[in-house]
């Protein structure tokens, strides 16, 4: 059995980077030194000022730095900024042009895979395909909460992929779409910040109630869930801080069955190993790694899993490097037990 390759997205270290505590170059070096690769994923609009324009000589310096750190480029996170303008969404032609500039940057930087987002429709994906071929890139549509494999947008892409039959188009599962419960550290952190237990319990109960309902199939249902959480916040005397617990729970923590990723497994070109907590037993309490990794291994997936720690949205005490390292240890333990069984 050849397991998937591990790696990390620098997004995991956002609090340090945003605080100007570590530069982009520092982070690459540290990922190498601490053995958090080999796969390296970067969000273009985060790490590179002026992206998708690249300063002269930047790409060569970047590739040397990655080589020196003993890392391998896994995926460039592009953004489908359909809402670039205030007055209207971009037209299809504008969005193709916007994505194409990022594809060119990915090629120049040496990334094999580009993450795209759901404003790119099946038609636009098809229009980008010849460019992916020309630039030797694979395009992966991220499946992120509140979407799921059965969402009409994803199903429409899947149909198009099957018709086009190109290995250069695929999906990037984000494990945040298939959580089994709210991250325990979320509730703990806000309890420590003084948010009343009654409100925290109400948010949790509402998330659990959503969990028992059918998955979101359109944006109107998502809007209704945002409103439901805001109502709970108001009814129980919450403020503009506590409301985020509720609204983030709709936006970040999806309700898909983790075993349902199997439905799109042949089309997986990269994985976002999104996680929030590591418990006392070294397990992830909300993202069942035994199931998530088992199904990737069973499908023979040998690409990268980019560890993506997002607990920093509320957790300001745990060190992101240590969290990523702990998730890698968990992944390696699961791989070892799968190999032994």
């Amino acid at each position: 059995m050849t397991p998937p390759k591990l790696g990390v997205t620098l997004y995991s270290f956002t609090p340090y980077f945003h605080a100007r505590q570590y530069t982009f170059e520092d982070l690459i070096r540290i990922v190498g030194e601490r053995g958090l690769g080999p796969g390296l994923e970067v969000v273009g609009f985060q790490s590179i000022k002026g992206f998708p324009r690249l300063p002269d000589g930047f790409a060569a310096r970047f590739r040397r730095l990655v080589d020196d750190a003993g890392l391998e480029l896994s995926c460039l996170g592009a953004n489908a900024d359909a809402g670039l303008r205030q007055d209207r969404l971009l037209t299809e032609d504008e969005l193709v042009e916007y994505m194409l500039a990022q594809l060119e940057a990915a090629r120049t930087l040496g990334f094999p895979v580009v993450r795209v987002q759901h404003s790119v429709t099946p038609d636009l994906m098809e229009r980008l395909l010849p460019h992916a071929e020309r630039l030797d890139l694979t395009l992966g549509m991220e499946i992120h909460s509140p979407h799921s494999v059965g969402h009409p947008k994803i199903q429409a892409l899947l149909e198009r992929y099957e018709r086009l039959g190109s290995p250069r188009l695929g999906f990037i599962p984000d494990w945040g779409a298939s959580l089994t419960q709210l991250p325990p550290s979320l509730l703990r952190t806000y309890r420590d910040k003084g948010v009343p237990d009654e409100l925290l319990t109400a948010f949790r109960d509402q998330w659990n109630a959503f969990h028992a309902e059918p998955l979101i199939m359109d944006d109107a249902e998502q809007g209704a869930r945002f409103r439901r959480m805001r109502e709970i916040n108001e009814r129980l005397g919450g403020d503009d801080v506590s409301v985020r617990i509720g609204t983030n729970s709709v936006g970040l923590f999806g309700h898909m069955d983790p075993a349902d990723w199997k439905q799109i497994m042949p089309w997986v070109v990269h994985v976002h190993g999104k996680f929030y907590d590591i418990d006392a037993d070294g397990a992830e309490p909300s993202a069942p790694h035994d199931i998530l990794l088992r199904d990737l291994v069973d499908a023979g997936y040998q690409g990268y899993i980019s560890t993506e720690w997002e607990g920093w949205h509320w957790n300001e005490t745990d060190d992101p490097f240590a969290m990523v390292a702990a998730q890698h240890r968990l992944s390696e333990r699961v791989f070892a037990s799968l190999a032994a069984s």
Partner: peptide
């Protein structure tokens, strides 16, 4: 405005 998160055609 978060330009890549349109919900029902309106970015978050």
């Amino acid at each position: 405005r978060i330009p890549y998160l349109p919900v029902a055609g309106k970015p978050l």
